[in-house]
Design a protein around this nucleic acid. Structure first.
Length: 249
DNA sequence: AAGGATGTTGCCTG
DNA sequence: TCAGGCAACATCCT
Protein backbone atom coordinates (compact mmCIF):
# COMPACT_ATOMS: atom_id res chain seq x y z
CA UNK A 1 0.00 0.00 0.00
CA UNK A 2 2.15 2.74 1.28
CA UNK A 3 4.44 5.04 -0.61
CA UNK A 4 3.88 8.75 -0.04
CA UNK A 5 1.21 9.18 -2.74
CA UNK A 6 -0.89 6.38 -1.22
CA UNK A 7 -0.80 8.17 2.10
CA UNK A 8 -1.93 11.37 0.39
CA UNK A 9 -4.95 9.44 -0.86
CA UNK A 10 -5.70 8.30 2.70
CA UNK A 11 -5.27 11.88 3.95
CA UNK A 12 -7.69 13.22 1.35
CA UNK A 13 -10.28 10.56 2.17
CA UNK A 14 -10.18 11.44 5.85
CA UNK A 15 -10.11 15.19 5.22
CA UNK A 16 -13.29 14.76 3.16
CA UNK A 17 -15.05 13.59 6.34
CA UNK A 18 -14.72 17.14 7.72
CA UNK A 19 -13.83 15.99 11.21
CA UNK A 20 -11.79 19.03 12.23
CA UNK A 21 -13.26 20.51 15.40
CA UNK A 22 -14.91 17.22 16.39
CA UNK A 23 -13.92 15.25 19.46
CA UNK A 24 -12.82 11.63 19.83
CA UNK A 25 -15.80 9.81 21.33
CA UNK A 26 -14.18 6.36 21.49
CA UNK A 27 -10.70 4.90 21.04
CA UNK A 28 -9.72 1.23 21.14
CA UNK A 29 -7.34 -1.31 19.64
CA UNK A 30 -4.22 -3.27 20.46
CA UNK A 31 -1.82 -0.42 19.70
CA UNK A 32 0.42 0.07 22.71
CA UNK A 33 -0.59 3.62 23.37
CA UNK A 34 -2.66 5.30 26.05
CA UNK A 35 -6.17 5.22 24.57
CA UNK A 36 -7.47 7.33 27.46
CA UNK A 37 -5.22 10.19 26.43
CA UNK A 38 -7.07 10.36 23.12
CA UNK A 39 -10.60 10.39 24.48
CA UNK A 40 -12.34 13.79 24.20
CA UNK A 41 -9.41 15.30 22.27
CA UNK A 42 -10.53 17.78 19.65
CA UNK A 43 -9.18 17.16 16.14
CA UNK A 44 -7.29 20.14 14.77
CA UNK A 45 -5.84 18.73 11.53
CA UNK A 46 -5.27 15.70 9.33
CA UNK A 47 -1.81 15.76 7.80
CA UNK A 48 0.78 13.54 6.24
CA UNK A 49 4.55 13.56 6.05
CA UNK A 50 5.93 11.09 3.57
CA UNK A 51 4.63 7.69 4.60
CA UNK A 52 3.37 8.99 7.96
CA UNK A 53 -0.36 9.64 8.38
CA UNK A 54 -0.96 12.20 11.11
CA UNK A 55 -4.04 12.81 13.24
CA UNK A 56 -3.35 16.06 15.05
CA UNK A 57 -4.74 17.31 18.35
CA UNK A 58 -3.75 20.37 20.33
CA UNK A 59 -1.14 18.70 22.52
CA UNK A 60 -0.42 15.44 20.72
CA UNK A 61 -0.51 13.74 17.35
CA UNK A 62 -1.21 10.15 16.38
CA UNK A 63 1.41 8.95 13.93
CA UNK A 64 0.36 5.96 11.83
CA UNK A 65 2.77 4.12 9.56
CA UNK A 66 1.27 1.36 7.42
CA UNK A 67 4.66 -0.28 6.83
CA UNK A 68 4.41 -3.01 4.19
CA UNK A 69 1.13 -4.67 5.13
CA UNK A 70 -0.92 -2.05 6.89
CA UNK A 71 -4.48 -1.31 5.87
CA UNK A 72 -7.38 0.89 6.86
CA UNK A 73 -11.15 1.12 6.60
CA UNK A 74 -13.20 4.28 6.84
CA UNK A 75 -16.70 3.88 8.24
CA UNK A 76 -16.47 0.12 7.86
CA UNK A 77 -14.62 -2.74 9.53
CA UNK A 78 -12.57 -5.79 8.64
CA UNK A 79 -12.66 -9.10 10.46
CA UNK A 80 -9.09 -8.89 11.71
CA UNK A 81 -7.88 -7.49 15.00
CA UNK A 82 -8.00 -3.70 14.93
CA UNK A 83 -4.81 -1.89 15.84
CA UNK A 84 -6.50 1.47 16.30
CA UNK A 85 -10.16 2.43 16.05
CA UNK A 86 -11.14 6.06 16.48
CA UNK A 87 -14.70 7.29 16.60
CA UNK A 88 -15.78 10.85 16.08
CA UNK A 89 -19.38 11.93 16.08
CA UNK A 90 -20.73 9.72 13.29
CA UNK A 91 -17.42 8.71 11.72
CA UNK A 92 -15.13 5.76 12.35
CA UNK A 93 -11.50 5.23 11.34
CA UNK A 94 -9.99 1.73 11.56
CA UNK A 95 -6.31 0.88 11.13
CA UNK A 96 -4.83 -2.62 10.93
CA UNK A 97 -1.31 -4.07 11.05
CA UNK A 98 0.37 -0.72 11.32
CA UNK A 99 2.72 1.13 13.60
CA UNK A 100 0.98 3.61 15.90
CA UNK A 101 2.81 6.16 17.98
CA UNK A 102 1.84 9.26 19.89
CA UNK A 103 3.93 12.35 19.26
CA UNK A 104 3.77 14.81 22.14
CA UNK A 105 3.46 18.55 21.67
CA UNK A 106 3.17 20.49 18.45
CA UNK A 107 3.39 18.36 15.31
CA UNK A 108 5.50 21.02 13.60
CA UNK A 109 8.28 20.33 16.06
CA UNK A 110 8.52 16.75 14.80
CA UNK A 111 8.74 17.20 11.05
CA UNK A 112 10.63 19.05 8.37
CA UNK A 113 7.83 19.59 5.87
CA UNK A 114 10.23 20.64 3.13
CA UNK A 115 11.50 17.05 2.94
CA UNK A 116 8.09 15.59 2.05
CA UNK A 117 8.15 14.73 -1.64
CA UNK A 118 4.38 15.36 -1.89
CA UNK A 119 4.19 18.55 0.16
CA UNK A 120 3.47 22.08 -1.02
CA UNK A 121 6.54 23.00 1.03
CA UNK A 122 8.81 20.51 -0.79
CA UNK A 123 12.21 22.11 -1.32
CA UNK A 124 14.28 20.61 -4.12
CA UNK A 125 17.28 22.78 -3.31
CA UNK A 126 17.35 21.49 0.26
CA UNK A 127 17.32 17.93 -1.10
CA UNK A 128 20.22 18.72 -3.42
CA UNK A 129 22.19 20.22 -0.54
CA UNK A 130 21.65 17.07 1.53
CA UNK A 131 22.63 14.85 -1.39
CA UNK A 132 25.89 16.72 -1.89
CA UNK A 133 26.90 15.62 1.59
CA UNK A 134 26.28 11.97 0.69
CA UNK A 135 28.69 11.45 -2.17
CA UNK A 136 29.50 7.84 -1.32
CA UNK A 137 25.86 6.80 -0.94
CA UNK A 138 24.38 4.75 -3.76
CA UNK A 139 21.62 6.46 -5.72
CA UNK A 140 19.28 3.65 -4.59
CA UNK A 141 19.85 4.35 -0.91
CA UNK A 142 19.78 8.12 -1.42
CA UNK A 143 16.36 8.01 -3.07
CA UNK A 144 14.99 5.80 -0.28
CA UNK A 145 16.42 8.07 2.45
CA UNK A 146 13.30 9.38 4.17
CA UNK A 147 15.13 12.42 5.51
CA UNK A 148 15.87 13.54 1.96
CA UNK A 149 12.90 12.18 -0.03
CA UNK A 150 10.23 11.57 2.58
CA UNK A 151 7.54 9.36 1.05
CA UNK A 152 9.65 7.95 -1.75
CA UNK A 153 9.44 4.15 -1.90
CA UNK A 154 10.87 1.31 -3.91
CA UNK A 155 8.52 1.54 -6.89
CA UNK A 156 9.19 5.24 -7.26
CA UNK A 157 12.92 4.63 -6.87
CA UNK A 158 12.95 2.23 -9.81
CA UNK A 159 10.87 4.43 -12.08
CA UNK A 160 12.75 7.63 -11.22
CA UNK A 161 16.12 6.09 -12.02
CA UNK A 162 14.83 4.96 -15.39
CA UNK A 163 13.26 8.32 -16.20
CA UNK A 164 16.43 10.12 -15.19
CA UNK A 165 18.52 7.64 -17.21
CA UNK A 166 20.68 6.90 -14.18
CA UNK A 167 22.12 3.42 -13.67
CA UNK A 168 21.35 2.20 -10.13
CA UNK A 169 24.97 1.28 -9.42
CA UNK A 170 26.02 4.95 -9.44
CA UNK A 171 26.85 6.73 -6.21
CA UNK A 172 25.66 10.30 -5.72
CA UNK A 173 29.20 11.60 -6.08
CA UNK A 174 29.52 10.16 -9.59
CA UNK A 175 26.55 12.09 -10.96
CA UNK A 176 27.27 15.34 -12.78
CA UNK A 177 25.44 18.22 -11.01
CA UNK A 178 22.94 18.60 -13.84
CA UNK A 179 22.07 14.91 -13.66
CA UNK A 180 21.58 15.13 -9.90
CA UNK A 181 19.06 17.93 -10.45
CA UNK A 182 17.27 15.87 -13.08
CA UNK A 183 16.97 13.02 -10.57
CA UNK A 184 15.52 15.27 -7.87
CA UNK A 185 13.04 16.79 -10.31
CA UNK A 186 12.03 13.34 -11.56
CA UNK A 187 11.45 12.18 -7.98
CA UNK A 188 8.93 14.95 -7.38
CA UNK A 189 7.24 14.58 -10.77
CA UNK A 190 6.95 10.82 -10.73
CA UNK A 191 5.44 10.92 -7.25
CA UNK A 192 2.58 13.05 -8.57
CA UNK A 193 2.16 10.79 -11.60
CA UNK A 194 2.00 7.88 -9.15
CA UNK A 195 -0.75 9.70 -7.24
CA UNK A 196 -2.78 10.37 -10.38
CA UNK A 197 -2.39 6.82 -11.74
CA UNK A 198 -3.12 5.24 -8.37
CA UNK A 199 -6.39 7.17 -8.16
CA UNK A 200 -7.27 5.93 -11.64
CA UNK A 201 -6.34 2.39 -10.62
CA UNK A 202 -3.84 2.35 -13.45
CA UNK A 203 -0.57 2.48 -11.57
CA UNK A 204 0.92 -0.80 -12.76
CA UNK A 205 -0.07 -0.09 -16.36
CA UNK A 206 2.41 2.79 -16.36
CA UNK A 207 5.41 0.96 -14.94
CA UNK A 208 8.32 1.27 -17.35
CA UNK A 209 10.77 -0.96 -15.46
CA UNK A 210 9.31 -2.03 -12.11
CA UNK A 211 8.38 -5.72 -12.41
CA UNK A 212 8.93 -5.53 -16.15
CA UNK A 213 10.93 -7.77 -18.50
CA UNK A 214 11.62 -5.16 -21.20
CA UNK A 215 12.12 -1.42 -21.05
CA UNK A 216 9.93 0.84 -23.25
CA UNK A 217 12.62 0.70 -25.94
CA UNK A 218 12.54 -3.08 -25.93
CA UNK A 219 15.80 -3.80 -24.12
CA UNK A 220 16.04 -6.71 -21.71
CA UNK A 221 15.90 -5.49 -18.12
CA UNK A 222 18.12 -6.69 -15.33
CA UNK A 223 16.88 -7.35 -11.81
CA UNK A 224 19.13 -7.13 -8.75
CA UNK A 225 18.62 -6.74 -5.02
CA UNK A 226 20.50 -3.56 -4.23
CA UNK A 227 21.33 -1.08 -1.50
CA UNK A 228 21.29 -1.29 2.28
CA UNK A 229 17.84 -2.83 2.35
CA UNK A 230 18.58 -5.21 -0.55
CA UNK A 231 15.53 -3.91 -2.38
CA UNK A 232 14.40 -5.11 -5.79
CA UNK A 233 15.89 -2.98 -8.50
CA UNK A 234 14.93 -3.25 -12.17
CA UNK A 235 17.10 -1.44 -14.68
CA UNK A 236 18.18 -1.16 -18.29
CA UNK A 237 21.89 -1.32 -18.99
CA UNK A 238 21.35 0.39 -22.33
CA UNK A 239 19.13 3.30 -21.29
CA UNK A 240 20.54 4.02 -17.84
CA UNK A 241 24.00 5.52 -17.71
CA UNK A 242 26.89 4.56 -15.47
CA UNK A 243 29.04 7.60 -14.70
CA UNK A 244 32.70 7.50 -13.73
CA UNK A 245 34.95 9.88 -11.84
CA UNK A 246 37.05 10.56 -14.92
CA UNK A 247 33.97 11.63 -16.81
CA UNK A 248 34.13 8.72 -19.21
CA UNK A 249 30.93 7.04 -20.25
C1' DA B 1 -0.08 -22.46 -5.37
C1' DA B 2 4.04 -21.17 -3.07
C1' DG B 3 6.62 -17.34 -2.55
C1' DG B 4 7.55 -12.68 -2.42
C1' DA B 5 6.56 -7.56 -1.69
C1' DT B 6 5.13 -0.54 -2.21
C1' DG B 7 8.73 -0.66 4.91
C1' DT B 8 10.59 -0.18 9.25
C1' DT B 9 11.69 -1.62 13.83
C1' DG B 10 13.77 -4.15 17.15
C1' DC B 11 15.77 -8.33 18.76
C1' DC B 12 19.49 -11.70 18.32
C1' DT B 13 24.03 -13.00 17.30
C1' DG B 14 28.87 -12.89 16.79
C1' DT C 1 29.60 -2.65 22.80
C1' DC C 2 28.19 -2.42 18.45
C1' DA C 3 27.08 -3.50 13.77
C1' DG C 4 24.96 -6.58 10.77
C1' DG C 5 21.34 -9.85 9.86
C1' DC C 6 16.92 -11.04 9.81
C1' DA C 7 12.18 -12.05 11.64
C1' DA C 8 7.98 -9.94 12.25
C1' DC C 9 3.73 -7.93 10.58
C1' DA C 10 -1.21 -9.83 7.01
C1' DT C 11 -2.75 -9.60 2.41
C1' DC C 12 -2.61 -9.57 -2.28
C1' DC C 13 -0.48 -10.62 -6.61
C1' DT C 14 2.19 -13.43 -9.74
Amino acid sequence: MPEGPSIVILKELVQDLHLVGKKVTHAEGDARIDMDQLLHQKLIAIKSWGKHFLICFKDCTIRIHLLMFGSYRINERKESQVRLRLNFNGAELNFYTCSVKILQGNVNDHYDWTADIMADDWNAEAAIDKLKKEKDTSVCDALLDQNIFSGLGNIIKNEVLYRAAIHPENTIGLLPPARLRIMVKAAREYSFDFLKWKKENKLAAHWEVYQQKLCPKGHELEKKYMGEGKRRTFFCNACQKMYSKKGKS
